[in-house]
């Protein structure tokens, strides 16, 4: 194993992987909620595919986080038996599917970030993370392309679709900065070479998103980042109101049968 040199490094990498794993898990869960409700059958297939990719990224990340943490928690323990304050995903990925435009806006902004992130993480000193990243970057290329195409169709489509797409971008935009903000865990992982400093991904994200918005005839929302209590947000375990409902639904069967195997 090429990771780190001591327990402190492993703990930071575990925390970092938990952030990445939670982002993918919750983004995938939200995407899967739309399956059977998409505007057309092709989108049921596409959104299910995206949900599967994200879940496929989340599982090895959470498994690896549990290994490095060393407390015997596997992917299911981490997904199903943590309470809301223990989830470390950014707030953007948990935003609800208010309409199709919200689903697309959320995933455009997230996939443009995650694509750059995993491209950089392919060189992670953690072998498992580097492997996941190498695969994820190809998947996220497709996700970004899918979201970009729909953003353009909706922005350039009808008056209604343009208005809905603009409203969806407004709803997601205040959560963009959080993706690019390092906390002490992320900084430690970046310093060890297991992770990357997300601030460095911002220029590539800006140009990718700006290009899509320009083609769609949409404007970059002029909205400040959402202020969290004491500057805290998802990375600190402080989530949006709908997140508790997401967890209640996701976890209830698993929690109703303590210790059962599935």
């Amino acid at each position: 194993m090429t990771t780190g040199t001591g327990p402190g490094t492993d703990a930071a990498t575990a925390g970092y992987l938990l952030r990445l794993g939670d982002d993918a898990l919750i983004a995938g869960h939200r995407m899967a909620e739309v399956v059977t409700r998409a505007p057309q059958l092709e989108e049921d297939v596409a959104l299910a595919n995206i949900a599967l990719d994200l879940l496929g990224q989340a599982r090895p990340l959470l498994t690896r986080a549990g290994e490095l943490e060393g407390e015997g928690r596997d992917e299911d323990t981490l997904a199903y038996l943590r309470d809301e304050p223990e989830f470390r995903n950014c707030l953007l990925v948990e935003l609800p599917n208010t309409d199709f435009a919200h689903t697309i806006a959320r995933h455009l902004l997230f996939s443009c970030y995650a694509r750059e992130l995993y491209a950089a993480l392919a060189a992670s000193t953690d072998d498992v993370l580097a492997g996941v990243a190498g695969k994820a970057v190809k998947e996220l290329d497709y996700h970004r392309d899918h979201a970009a195409q729909w953003t353009v169709r909706l922005g350039d489509g009808t008056e209604e679709s343009a208005a809905r797409m603009a409203a969806a971008l407004d709803a997601a935009w205040p959560h963009v900065d959080e993706m690019f903000t390092a906390d002490p865990v992320i900084s430690a992982a970046a310093a060890s070479g297991a992770g990357v400093d997300p601030a460095g991904l911002r220029p590539a994200w800006d140009s990718a998103v700006d290009a899509v918005l320009a083609e769609a005839g949409l404007h970059r929302p002029d909205l400040p980042p959402q202020a969290g209590p004491g500057g805290r947000g998802g990375r600190h375990g402080l989530h949006t109101q709908s997140f508790g409902f997401l967890l209640a639904e996701m976890q209830h069967v698993h929690r109703s049968h303590p210790g059962a195997a599935w």
Partner: peptide
Amino acid sequence: ITRAPSLKRKAVLIAKVQDEAG
């Protein structure tokens, strides 16, 4: 899908429902 009791089952179920759409 949103209530599947393990991540493995959830992945298999999403894939199955996707197959049905296909």
